[in-house]
Amino acid sequence: MNELLEKLSRARGVAGHESEVRAILREELAAHVEELTVDSIGNLIVRKGRSDAAGTQRVMLAAHMDEVGGMVMRTNADGTVKFRSVGGLDPRILPGKRVTIGAQSVPGVIMRAPHAARSGKRVVPISDLLIDTGGAGGIAPGDMITFESEYEEYGRLLKGKSFDDRVGCFILAELMKGDFPCELVGAFTVQEEIGLRGAGVAAYAVEPDVAVALEGTVADDLPKQDDLSPTTELGKGPSISVMDRSAHADRRLVRILTETATAHNIPWQIKQPGVGGTDVGTIHLAREGVPAVAVAVPCRYIHTPAALMDPADVKSAIELMSKALSGPLARPLGPERSEA
């Protein structure tokens, strides 16, 4: 669909190893922003539209650069590699998957004891899985482990690695190329998957008036026996979070986004409350507090080697954010009042 999105999806970077993603974004945005800095934890902060005029609204958009993956614990005498997850991985999807290890990109496959295959009654925990590299050298404890999956089209959808949250990085990068009547700060954050750690630091430094986290989020729109929530659905537009495990969204921002989308005929959906967490969790608690909300592209199978998303939802997310940044999001929020 897009060269930048493809590049971001292919880039490798678990929490603490985001430099490849950061380099892509730096290069992409250097010509489009007024200032570009990297802070002590590794967040890439880009700014534009800074003015001395009093009353200018400072809007922070955040997208995390890190992906879920693993880390090498040690190499066994037989050449196999013990590893642990970095971020939340479902151990059930790991056996048999291709991975790439460390800066030298050593290939490997995840294997599990054959007896575990036979019993099938128990989930084999990550601590009991191994990576087989054929005994390749060049692997050290602490090396990052990433999944291997091509970026490609699947029917009407896009398939690739790390859409959580490279799609957010892509949307943020595209927005930073635009011009909006506010001071716009883009925070490409680190270490979201291990506890929203980069975003809190970024928000403290940026001191925004409002913030929006841009995400790739859970879609659970598989067929089900019972009439249950799909969390989000592909093709129904960007999702807006009201509440998740990390934060309550600012209701004024939710209203701005839903009203903007409706006014411009952009599809939108409310994400199933209570599921997951985003950088908003630490951003909204920075300093004296920051009104914040998360806008996300629904993705099936996040936290696995390959996720699927609808390019139409990506387009709608960019459109929604552009319209909001051109209008109400660029103006100070009014007081929060109870509805009559």
Partner: peptide, 11 residues
């Protein structure tokens, strides 16, 4: 091309 789908652990 396709992939084997299962429900996300998040839910």
């Amino acid at each position: 091309p396709g992939l084997i789908a299962s429900r996300p652990p998040h839910v």
